[in-house]
Design a protein around this nucleic acid. Structure first.
Length: 498
RNA sequence: GGGCCGUUAGCUCAGAGGGAGAGCACCGGCCUUUUAAGCCGGGUGUCGCUGGUUCGAGUCCAGCACGGCUCACCA
């Protein structure tokens, strides 16, 4: 598909645009000028003046200098209508030879759809009532050297949309809205935590030991120090060091990198919100999660219900809470007693996911959970107390030492959040790491590495702390009703063409 | 990584063994309140790439590339 870049052969339409560029240059016109003073944007004009009547415009003679990209042209002999757009709206303009002069009208005929120009003119309403700029003069701001996709369908080809996101944004206004929504979610999330006395921090993206999650890392190398580094898979261990240091409420919104497969729910780099609050446990985290997501929905969407595909998702508090093992037997149909048969469960997991082994008991339960439970949880659901052995950084549950004080929040069948009462005992943390190391030796590349520096930090005293990670991309998917993560990431990872 | 599907004009797509099509866009002409403007004229193409089958391949077969869905893993 990628056969028309600047180095390859040009299409007839690109050649035609090149010819127009040369003609305009020969007329002494600067097609890529430095600066222009404008009075309004397209969307400012629309919001400020749409409600005025024809008579208002005749009386007030509102003059504007407005820039925008030309997205349509209707030429009618010695007069033309066209639409200018910015990323939030489009505005019609009218240009007549008897207003701009014969010479300028000829120059205008060298304008293409896609060019960026500025108009100087007076607002009026046409006889069909459309707000329009009566153009008195115009100035080129940038020439567009490629034809734009057609006006009815926009750009549909997914590969092209992701590879040329700039073009996608020009011709598909609904795509712009998704990213405005994403921006609002992040902005209001910051507001939510800032108002609660949290401080936002930035911790390293390059880790000597990748930790805080169970995933395969990307590896890189620092020349001057002569050391291998890993792109972080989670900021968790650094954020908890900060709590040790007395920063009782911290959060970070930033990228994580996991060297795993790409799918509709996975991009190798993705945005994670992580927050930690001292003197809290996982129950407090559940309350705060309900509050945050409910707040985002009310504030940004103005409602507590979200349409997602064929589902209506209610974000009204409180949300369902179900124990991991209860969810397992309820949705898998496996009798609760059967879960005590550790060998049998491991065997079942091996048939469900043969590539994934070797299995520990806890990991086998995880596989069964992903297969039978997760897809059924559409309404927001906290799945609490998963097996301790797949939660090496979480406190054990006092009532049941095999379970962790941890939850996963599932919405629309996706894991949106993961949180726990943080494990604060350095000796127990060392033991958990050692157990993970054994699994690593048995061939599980995703097991946690031993991080003695982190254990040393814990030895200074981490107060009881609740911590949580929320996958921002997936949250945006739910809010924007998008079924693939590529629709909420501006530049998703693609294999290079050619 | 496995399975299934896709790749034809700038864009959106049709064409399923007999030599390349439509709409928009584009090019030429007409047109001073149009808006999916209209009217007249013009197809602008390495049918993803490489091989094979065939008298003949966009069409059938194989391999490759990229993408999509899905399974597996992770958030």
């Amino acid at each position: 598909m990628e056969k028309k870049d600047s180095t390859s052969k040009k299409s007839d339409q690109e050649l035609a645009r090149q010819v127009k560029l040369q003609k305009l240059s020969q007329e002494g016109i600067d097609l890529f000028p430095h600066k222009i003073n404008i009075t309004h944007s397209v969307s400012e004009i629309i919001s400020a003046y749409s409600s005025l009547s024809k008579e208002d415009f005749e009386e007030k003679k509102i003059r504007v200098i407005v820039p925008g990209r030309i997205i349509s042209i209707r030429k009618m002999g010695r007069a033309s209508f066209f639409h200018l757009s910015d990323s939030r709206g489009k505005l019609q303009a009218y240009l007549r030879e008897d207003n701009v002069g014969k010479k300028n009208y000829q120059l205008f005929s060298l304008i293409d759809i896609g060019d960026i120009i500025a108009l100087d003119g007076v607002l009026f309403k046409t006889k069909t009532g459309e707000l329009t700029v009566l153009t008195e003069s115009f100035k080129f701001l940038a020439k567009c050297l490629h034809p734009l996709p057609e006006k009815w369908h926009g750009l549909q080809d997914l590969e092209l949309r992701y590879r040329k996101r700039h073009l996608d944004l020009i011709v598909n206004p609904e795509v712009v809205e998704v990213f405005r929504l994403r921006s609002a979610i992040i902005a209001y999330t910051r507001k939510f935590f800032d108002e609660r006395g949290y401080i936002e921090v930035e911790t390293p993206m390059m880790h000597p030991i990748p930790g805080g999650a169970l995933a395969r890392p990307f590896k890189t190398y620092h020349n001057a120090l002569g050391m291998e580094l890993y792109l972080r898979i989670a900021p968790e261990l650094y954020l908890k060091r900060l709590v040790v240091g007395g920063l009782d409420k911290v959060y970070e919104i930033n990228r994580n990198f996991r060297n795993e497969g790409i799918s509709s729910e996975h991009n190798p780099e993705f945005t994670m919100l992580e927050f930690y609050e001292a003197y809290c446990d996982y129950n407090d985290m559940m309350d705060m999660t309900e509050e945050l997501i409910n707040y985002l929905s009310r504030t940004i969407l103005g409602k507590e219900e979200i349409t997602y595909g064929e589902h209506i998702i209610s974000l009204q508090k409180p949300w369902k809470r179900i124990r991991f093992k209860e969810a397992l037997s309820y949705y898998s149909g496996i009798a609760p007693g059967k879960f005590d048969d550790r060998e049998g469960i491991i065997e079942l997991a091996s048939t469900l996911a043969p590539d994934k082994g070797p299995f520990s008991y806890g990991k086998a339960l995880d596989v069964i959970f992903d297969k039978y439970v997760k897809p059924n949880l559409i309404q927001p659901t906290f799945v609490i107390n998963p097996p301790k052995e797949v939660s090496p950084l979480a406190k054990a549950s006092p009532e049941n030492p095999d379970e962790a004080e941890r939850f996963e929040l599932i919405i629309a069948g996706m894991e949106i959040a993961n949180a726990f009462s943080e494990l604060t005992d350095p000796d127990e943390q060392r033991e958990r790491f050692e157990q993970q190391a054994e699994e690593r030796e048995r061939g599980d590349e995703e097991s946690h590495m031993i991080d003695t520096d982190y254990i040393n930090a814990l030895e200074y005293g981490l107060p009881p702390t609740g911590g949580e990670g929320i996958g921002i991309d997936r949250l945006v998917m739910v809010f924007a009703n998008r079924k693939t993560i590529r629709e909420v990431i501006l530049f998703p990872l693609l294999r290079p063409k050619e």
